[in-house]
Design a protein around this nucleic acid. Sequence first.
DNA 1: GCAAGGTC
Length: 866
Amino acid sequence: MQAPGAAIAMHFSPGSMSSHKGLNGTCSVHEYTGTFAGQTVRFKMTSVCGHVMTLDFLGKYNKWDKVDPAELFSQAPTEKKEANPKLNMVKFLQVCKEAFGCLAPQLVEGKGCDYIVLWLDCDKEGENICFEVLDAVAPVMNQAHSGEKTVFRARFSSITDTDICNAMARLGEPDHNEALSVDARQELDLRIGCAFTRFQTKYFQGKYGNLDSSLISFGPCQTPTLGFCVERHDKIQSFKPETYWVLQAKVTADKDRTLLLDWDRVRVFDREIAQMFLNMTKLEKEAQVEATSKKEKAKQRPLALNTVEMLRVASSSLGMGPQHAMQTAERLYTQGYISYPRTETTHYPENFDLKGTLRLQANHPCWTDSVKKLLAEGINRPRKGHDAGDHPPITPMRSATEAELGSEAWRLYEYITRHFIATVSYDCKYLQSSISFRIGPERFTCTGKTVISPGFTEIMPWQSVPLEESLPTCQKGDTFPVSEVKMLEKQTSPPDYLTEAELITLMEKHGIGTDASIPVHINNICQRNYVTVESGRRLKPTNLGIVLVHGYYKIDAELVLPTIRSAVEKQLNLIAQGKADYRQVLGHTLDVFKRKFHYFVDSIAGMDELMEVSFSPLAATGKPLSRCGKCHRFMKYIQAKPSRLHCSHCDETYTLPQNGTIKLYKELRCPLDDFELVLWSSGSRGKSYPLCPYCSNHPPFRDMKKGMGCNECTHPTCQHSLSMLGIGQCVECESGVLVLDPTSGPKWKMACNKCNVVAHCFENAHRVRVSPDTCSVCEAALLDVDFNKAKSPLPDNETQHTGCVFCDPIFQELVELKHAATRHPMHRGGPGRRQGRGRARGRRPTGKFNPRRPKDKMSALAAYFV
DNA sequence: GCAAGGTC
C-alpha cells in the first residue's frame, strides 16, 4: 500500500504536512504535528512495498546436487531474507524509526520513536507485514515506560475520513495468530514446492533430452492451474460426437417475409423418430398461433470493476494476456490515470465521488455525449456489489488520450473508463416477444428482441442486444402458411480448449491464487512450456503438461486437484482464528506432504511410463559434438533447454551456459581433464569464449564456480585461460577482467568475463597475442599486434606494435567500448562517434588484477588445485 | 534453477 499513507497523513494534518522521499527513493515519508493520547506529538508516516521479508532455505540447502529434496521437508533450516534487497527496506524503516504512522513526541528533539501505529492492509498478509515491520523497528524504538503500550494496529475498511477517524479512535493490537498463519503458508509453499520441483526436474532431466523446459516445477497453485487446462484437453480427447436431428419450420408472415421457427423438442437423437415427426408436420399447410407473449426485460449494467474481471475482459476482448494486462494497469496506476488495480471489491464505497469521477470524462471526445447526458439527467445508482474490504473498484482518475498513453495502455484505459461510465448508467431495456405455433402435433416457437432503451450498452456497444427483426403482431388462433418444414442432421461438437478468461474464473472459484497472483500462475505454466497460448487466447496443454497431470492422477490425484490449496488453507485459517497451534498445524501438514512426497518418489515409474511415450531418452537425443575426456567417445549436444552435453558411454551430463550457441572449438583439449573444448557465443555482436564441459561443471580451482568458462579459469599456463588471455580490469564492473577473445579476429575483441562489456580493438590485425609483459603505468598486459600491411594504422608502413590498450597512444585510439547484450541501447557505442565514449576510460585498471605470469609455475599450480 | 504472496 503506497498512496494511502499520504491520504491518512493528510487526514490528520490538513495543510501542515511536509513530505519527502525515503532513502530508498521509493517510499515517501510524511511528517506533521498533531495530538496522540492527549499530548502534542510529531507524527512521521511512511509505507512499505508489500512484504519486507521473504522466506528461503539457508544457502547451503540451495545446492541442488548436494541436497536430497526429501531433506527440504524438515531438516533444511529456513531464514527470512529481505524480499527486495535493492529497496533496503529494513534500514529504511530503522532510519525512519517508525512505519505507517509512528507517533513520536521526542522525535522533534531527534531522540527517536516512542509509539508505532500500523496502518497496513487489513488481511492476513497485511497482519504478517505488521510483524515484519515491527521486527525491523522494535530494536531501535525507545524503551517503553513499564506497562505502557507502544504498538498499535489501525483497522479500517477504506481510506475515508470516517473510517480513518474510527480506526484511530479504536486502535487495537496486531493479530499475531493471523500473522502466524501466513508464516505457516510461506513455509509450506516453500518446502513442498521446492522439494517436488527439484526432484521432478532432476529425475526427468537426467533421463530425457527433449523435454524443452529447463524446470519441471510443481506448486500448490500452478499445478492445479495446469490441471484445469489438461482436464479440458481430456474432455476434448474423450469426446465422441453424436448425431442428432432437428426440425426447422418456416412460415410466411407477409408477402416478402418468412419467419424461422425453433422446434420445442430442440433435438432428438433417433433418426426414425425425427423422421416420424417430420412426416406428421409435413402434412400440414398451416401453422396455428397457440399463444403470444411480450415481456419487458433488462440487461443489467455491470458491477464496479475488480481485478479478475478486468483481466478476463482484457484477455477475451482486448487480446491481452493477464500478465501483460496487469503490467499495463500498474503503469496506468503509477502514472495516475487509474485507481489501484489490485482489488477484489466490486462495490463503490459509500462516499465515493461518482459524479466527480464522471465529470473528469465530460470533455473526452470518445464519450463526451454520453457523459454529458448522464451528468445532465442524473446518474444511476451503481449496483450493490461485493465489498472485500481491500481497495475500491478500478476507476479512471483523470482523462487521457490515446496519443498520451500509447495504443496498448489506451485500450485498457478506454475499457476501464467505459466500464466505469456503464456502472453509473441505466440498465438496457428491451422487449422480448415470442409466438408459439402448432404445426400438426408439434410445437414451434419464434422469438424476437427489440430495444426499448439502450442504457449502458451505449457506452459498451459490444454488450448491446443484437438487432433482430420485430415479430408480426398476431393473436391466438391466427394462422400462417407453412412455407417449409425440413429435418436437419447435426452433430454434437466437442468443447474447445480453455480460454484464459475461463481459467481465471475457475481459479477464482476454487480459490487458487489471488487477484495479484493469478496472472503469475498462468504465466508460469506458459513459461514452463506446459501450455501454449493459441488463437483466441485459448490454452492448449503441451505433451509435457499433459504427461505431468496424467502422472499426478496416476500416482496421487490430490497433487493436482484444486482442493489441495483449499484444504491447506482451511488448516491455516484455524491458526489465524487461534483455534489451532501454529507449530502443530505446520508440523502435521508437512508430515502429510512428506509422506506424499516419498510415495511420489517411490511411484515415479508410473509418471515415467507416460514420459517415455512422448520424450526421447538422453542417449537418443542430440548430435555428436565433442569428445569426452574420460572415454574419448563423442558426447551428444542436446540443444533443448537446458542445453547440455551427454556422454552415453559414461552416462554423464554436463550442463552448458544457456542463451547462446555452442560449437566445437578447433578440437582443442583442456590440459586438466582432456575434454574437448567448446565455444560458447552469444552471437556475432555479442561475446564468445571457450569452455571445458568438465571444468564448467566441476570447477578445478578453489576460486572458480560452476558454469565458468576458460575466460574465468585461473590455470596458470593453459593457453585458453584467464591467466594467459586476461588483459586488465574491466572498465565498468567491480570484479570483471577484460579477456582477449582469441576467435574474434579479424575484428578483434576483448570481453569482460563478468559483465557484458565488450571492447573492440583492432580491425585490421591478422594476429593479436597477449604479451608476458605488463604496462608500467597500469599493470595491464601488453598486446603484441601484427597489422595488415595495407591497412596498418602505424607510421612508416610498420606492421608490428606492442603496447598497452589503455595507455599506448596508438592503441588507445583504436579501442571502442560496447556492450555485448542489446538490452541497453542507451549504452551502445555508435559507429563514427568516437569522442566521449570511444576509449575505455574513467577507471584505470587498479592493479588488483595482475596478468603477469607467476615466476614459479608449478608452485602456483599446486596452490590452485583443490 | 525451486513456491506463493506482497508490491515497484
